[in-house]
């Protein structure tokens, strides 16, 4: 069954990281991070979402690892939010899903 979830994480610098996730049969089929943070080049943020596709929504450990590796390996400049905020946003989606499923 497909479902859509959205969560918001507010960074310590006052910016928001939003994540929209589409899940099909327990697996992430689409995930997009957006928000009022600053990123250069901005297109790379969408590549972060690509790197999480196919994961089980419950596999937060692996998702967290991929997010960390992404920011470590890509030449991306980020201001107003940290990689941790992206991880927390995704965690919030999982928590929401646990409550409603």
């Amino acid at each position: 069954m497909d479902f859509y979830r959205h969560a918001v994480q507010r960074s310590s610098e006052g910016k928001t990281v939003r994540v929209c996730v589409v899940v099909s049969n327990g697996k992430i089929v689409n995930v997009i991070f957006t928000g009022d943070f600053f990123a250069e080049p901005p297109e790379l943020i969408h590549k972060l979402g690509e790197s999480l596709k196919g994961l089980s929504l419950q596999d937060l450990e692996e998702a967290g690892r991929r997010i960390e590796n992404f920011f470590k390996n890509e030449e991306i400049w980020l201001m107003g939010a940290s990689p941790e905020d992206f991880k927390i946003a995704l965690t919030k989606v999982v928590q929401q899903s646990s409550k409603t499923d």
Binding site: R18, C20, T34, G35, D36, A39, P42, I45
Partner: peptide
Amino acid sequence: IGRCQCVSL
């Protein structure tokens, strides 16, 4: 709207 924002949200 900002470059990284979702217009729908």
